[in-house]
Amino acid sequence: MMVKSTMDTGEGERLLAARRRRFWTIVALLVGTGALVGFFSGMYAGYTDAARAEGGVAALGPSDFPFVLRIAAVAAAVLAFAALTWWFTVSVDELEIADNLWGSTAGLYAYSILFPAWWALWKLEVTSEPDDWIIFATSLIVAGIVYLWRKWRYR
């Protein structure tokens, strides 16, 4: 663990500026990849859903694409997110890691509480069957709120 105590004043600010640029580059790549994947998958899902709603079948259904291509498309997205999140994790400082861990823990707890509660209510014939997407989105929202609350606290 080296600390450059002999560096000139201003050198630290330059190092921090480079660090900040790297951070925002990774965030931009993550958001860009997410937007790209979301745009194309959402567009295709909307297209097939619309065709089904009209009582028909989409002219270009999933089976029209080669099996390997379908797997490759999903694998590429998974690998891109895995690589970018790994790069993010090794590039940020310990406070950012702590913020991420708190957010992730809150999100996991939200999921662990929400799903069994909803499932029990469904079994007791109080509600409809648990909706995966609502639980997934709620967990992410809870994680995001806790993460942002910690970020705001340190401003």
Partner: peptide
């Protein structure tokens, strides 16, 4: 400046 020297953010 201190953050840069330590390798952590200003926050």
């Amino acid at each position: 400046e201190l953050g840069g020297r330590l390798g952590v953010s200003r926050q």
